[in-house]
């Protein structure tokens, strides 16, 4: 079973569909002396935080040892891939929902000042959005509140263009965002795939499977997979998905012009149900 569902799910349900994991008060009584708390920069410095680990990449023993600490840290900041269908259920629960600039992309590709055309793909969730002006640097570019329907349209728009839907906690299990992610600028996908920081991004509750009857071997899906899980099988002229590598994002299912790929429940497959 998914570890997060086990700990934070509501009676065996998916943890991110449990309203408790979105709940926060609007106010707190002031504590004067705490007013001047220094800002923790981890989230805004993103990749800088992982630099010491990456420096050790060609020293496997030291790398493994240091990685332990990072894995521990990510128990408080965890993520998971979700399907479009589940993301649409999430925005029915989460309030408020606000469109913001992707913090990862801003850091790795400096897209923030690319004007109106920049992909403002992330959604911030929860009452923290009401107090964003307190830390303008964190929400640089501002926040734009969306209705539930607008949020659904937003997610669908980017997902159908090839972005992976992920969710992120800020103090697990509190869900603070729905991100529309794109390797390599997405730090979560990158740290999971390239450096094995598993709790930063767990695989989703589904996996993609090709229906060989329908697949025409056009290869469209291959271009879209961000996880390196799809290739064209030259001999059969069909697309081949390695389900052990698949994160279940569903991007390929929308890319396929034949509707030949479907998402199936991970937990129904004995060989994959412990693979997150």
């Amino acid at each position: 079973m998914c570890e997060l569902c086990e700990k934070y799910g509501d009676n065996g349900g998916r943890w991110y569909l449990n309203p408790e994991n979105y709940a926060r008060p609007l106010y707190k009584k002031v504590e004067k002396e705490k007013e001047k708390e220094p800002m923790i920069l981890t989230e805004l410095q993103g990749p800088f935080y992982y630099k010491p680990l990456i420096e050790l990449k060609d020293n496997p023993e030291a790398f493994e040892k240091m990685r332990e600490g990072y894995l521990k840290f990510h128990e408080t900041m965890s993520g998971q891939v979700v399907s479009l269908e589940d993301a649409e259920k999430m925005v029915e629960i989460a309030h408020p929902i606000a469109r913001i600039d992707c913090i990862c992309r801003r850091i790795t590709r400096a897209t923030l000042e690319d004007g109106e055309q920049r992909p403002r793909s992330c959604l911030g969730l929860g009452v923290g959005m009401f107090r964003w002006e307190e830390w303008p640097e964190r929400y640089k570019g501002g926040v734009e509140f969306l209705s539930t329907e607008e949020a659904k349209e937003h997610i669908e728009h980017w997902h159908k263009r090839g972005m992976v839907i992920t969710i992120m906690t800020f103090g697990t299990p509190y869900i603070g965002g729905i991100c529309l992610c794109d390797y390599p600028d997405c730090l979560a996908i990158r740290m999971r795939l390239d450096y094995g920081i598993k709790p930063f991004l767990l695989k989703g509750h589904q996996v993609a499977k090709v229906n060989y009857e329908e697949c025409t071997g056009c290869g469209t899906c291959v271009q879209r997979c961000q996880f390196g899980a799809i290739k064209m099988e030259v001999t059969t002229k069909k697309s081949n998905i390695d389900m052990t590598r698949c994160f279940g994002c569903g991007v390929c299912t929308y890319a396929c012009p034949q509707d030949a790929i479907s998402l199936i429940d991970r937990e129904k497959l004995p060989g994959l149900k412990e693979e997150w």
Binding site: E20, Y22, R24, P25, K28, V127, T148
Partner: peptide, 21 residues
Amino acid sequence: EIAYLSIQPFRRLRIVANSSR
């Protein structure tokens, strides 16, 4: 929250769920 923070000792009200429902 205004009411409870006025009469109760805690610093914040423990919200269990605040969805549209």
